[in-house]
């Protein structure tokens, strides 16, 4: 059974004067341990699709099953719980709390999961060490470089062992060198068995994924497997 099962999903925004069809009938299945890039020009509906997949938004119509559960049936608190336990978000703008240390930022999902403080700390420390920031745990975001900030965000996404990691333009605010490092980190995560969904408009970023979904005008325009995904090694 697919981890993510999306069938005929429509998302319509009422902009007052007109109805905007951000998604007009999208059907996709994503299996566990896939590495999928969602591409498309702006206005294609890729952000909306990501919000739906991330349970930040619910479809106007159509079916969305996450791990066999119909997301449309869930209330606000249940959606929050899915976001907390099943999904790890990585944002283009990092979205770290500016006045908190890296460690506390990574602890946040665990706080909302109700994990006791000593365990929280242990797990957050491990997640930060795993992304190579073991020596930066008590730094605040403004004391870290862009790449380090995004690593903190990745650690935060990983810390609660989610079913999928959902990255929205994760390299958009990074220079290309740092971007490559982050993509390398994603490849490693995928190799460790994580499921990754990447939203991007950059071709070379998308090519790190093993499958590329292209959206156009709120519909899936193409769905192809990448024969030779970019890896860290191939770029050296």
């Amino acid at each position: 059974m697919a981890l993510i099962h999306i069938k005929d999903v429509v998302k319509t925004y009422d902009m007052g004067a007109e109805l905007v069809h951000a998604l007009s009938g999208v059907t996709i299945d994503i299996q566990a341990n896939e590495y999928v890039a969602i591409m498309g020009p702006s206005g294609s509906g890729k952000s909306t699709l990501m919000n739906v997949i991330g349970c930040l938004d619910t479809p106007t119509s159509g079916l969305y099953e996450f791990g066999g559960e119909n997301v449309g049936d869930l209330d606000d608190n249940q959606l929050a719980e899915i976001r907390n336990r099943k999904i790890g978000f990585v944002f283009q703008t990092f979205n770290l709390l500016p006045r908190s240390t890296a460690l506390h930022n990574v602890e946040l999902p665990l706080i909302y999961a109700g994990v006791p403080s000593h365990e929280r700390r242990e797990r957050a420390e491990k997640a930060l060490t795993d992304v190579g920031l073991g020596d930066r745990m008590l730094h605040k975001p403004n004391e870290l470089s862009g790449g380090q900030r995004q690593r903190v965000a990745v650690a935060r996404a990983l810390v609660n062992n989610p079913s999928i990691i959902l990255a929205d333009e994760p390299t958009g605010n990074l220079d290309s060198r740092t971007g490559v490092e982050i993509m390398q980190l994603f490849s490693e995560l995928h190799a460790q068995g994580n499921t990754l969904i990447l939203v991007t408009h950059e071709e070379e970023i998308a090519e790190h994924a093993h499958r590329i979904l292209r959206l156009f005008d709120g519909k899936v325009a193409s769905d192809e497997v990448v024969a030779n995904p970019l890896t860290y090694a191939s770029q050296m």
Binding site: L56, N77, A80, F89, L108, Y112, R156
Partner: peptide
């Protein structure tokens, strides 16, 4: 928004 994405409920 970030906190909600990370799993904060309305009541939190």
């Amino acid at each position: 928004g970030t906190r909600k994405a990370l799993g904060a409920t309305r009541s939190s």
